[in-house]
Design a protein around this nucleic acid. Structure first.
Lengths: 199, 199
DNA sequence: CGATGATGAGAACGGTCATTCTCACTGGTG
DNA sequence: CACCAGTGAGAATGACCGTTCTCATCATCG
């Protein structure tokens, strides 16, 4: 689209696909470079010339997944009717995510627990993701005509739903969280169906 | 108290203190048995005769911390006035936890991200903790006169607050979550101050 | 005192990890 | 054809890990 962005290297993308798959499903430290090599079907040499260290590969996979998630939620919420329905759509999106067979919680929280304390670059990437995610959900809520405080709570509900769905292995928390979100926004502006003046 | 429970071995407790400290602050796999030995100031031999493997030590530290957390919340909420104040107290408790200088998120979620996929015993312990935690918060909410559904949402808010406080390094999510909880319970039973007939 | 079984301190072991290196080979260029 | 920069495949390297073993020391009890 833009002239600044390079065409993405397909081998690099393929490597990131494999990294995402194995790191997310098993954890970072549980997966050796040899297993990654096998998963990507790429010579170790090529992996290391694309990413100089495992750590940078981890950061890159988190960053790419972040962009994908943000775009996906934005698009999905955008398709809903203006107003409260866009907030509800957040939780519908989450519900679909939780139902994916290889769902195993929040990739960023998982990596945070494992490497957050020892790897500043990873900690910064997780921090950045969550900040942006929070801003996205707050933004959707504010655009729907509600307060930023309510938006922040929507984010807390979403984070809680992800953790709980991961550990309990059920998508039900998405539904619980959606109901709560609908009560909260109804409590803020009772009797409201169409989009009001945003901001 | 009970005649069945043995007097706890003080060396074992000391070892668990050290394990909890180092595993929680740095992650499990980032801490070798040698560092744990140093932290506990105990011969490796004694560590291994108390716990036959590192994995069992991890499970034991999670279990002991779970019991401590459950008892602490129960006691703290019990001191609040009956009714809605007990639900609010949950988030006051969380706020105090988030303000502790070595707070680094939920010990169980951290370990889940690291070992949940590869270590079934650890995954089961995390699952058990979260189930019990959810039951505790739901129970407090129900005892305060509200529905179990609301109790489950209280739990989602609490989980979200822990994750967010950990990554953003601020206790503010506890306050945000408390406000949301108060709105939710007010929406369920408007105009209510003293304890109603529980259950 | 002398014998015995347990203890502390740390070395040793077998395995795995991230990273680098070797080397035979390839495809493109003079 | 001769040359050579770069490639694929995997071995080598050096560090570290969880666990076990050694052995000098010590407390206990006859």
């Amino acid at each position: 689209m833009t002239s600044v962005e390079e065409a993405p290297d397909p081998i690099r993308e393929h490597l990131l696909d494999a990294a995402e798959q194995v790191f997310y499903s098993r954890g970072v430290q549980a997966v050796g470079m040899d297993r990654l090599r096998t998963a990507a079907n790429l010579p170790l040499r090529r992996i290391y010339q694309l990413f100089p260290s495992k750590d940078e590969l981890v950061v890159a996979f988190l960053r790419r997944r972040h962009l994908r998630m943000m775009a996906s939620i934005t698009e999905f919420a955008g398709k809903a009717d203006e107003g409260a329905a866009q907030v509800s759509a957040i939780f519908t999106w989450l519900h679909k995510w939780f139902c994916e067979p290889d769902f195993r919680g929040c990739p960023w929280m998982n990596v945070f627990g494992e490497l957050g304390a020892t790897n500043p670059a990873v900690a910064a990437e997780v921090h950045h993701h969550q900040r942006e995610f929070r801003k996205l959900l707050s933004g959707i809520t504010v655009d729907a005509g509600y307060s930023r405080e309510t938006g922040n709570v929507i984010h807390l509900l979403a984070e809680g739903a992800v953790s709980t769905a991961a550990v309990q292995r059920t998508a039900a928390p998405a539904t619980e969280a959606r109901r709560a979100a609908e009560i909260l926004i109804a409590a803020e502006k009772p009797g409201k169906k169409r989009s009001g003046s945003a901001r």
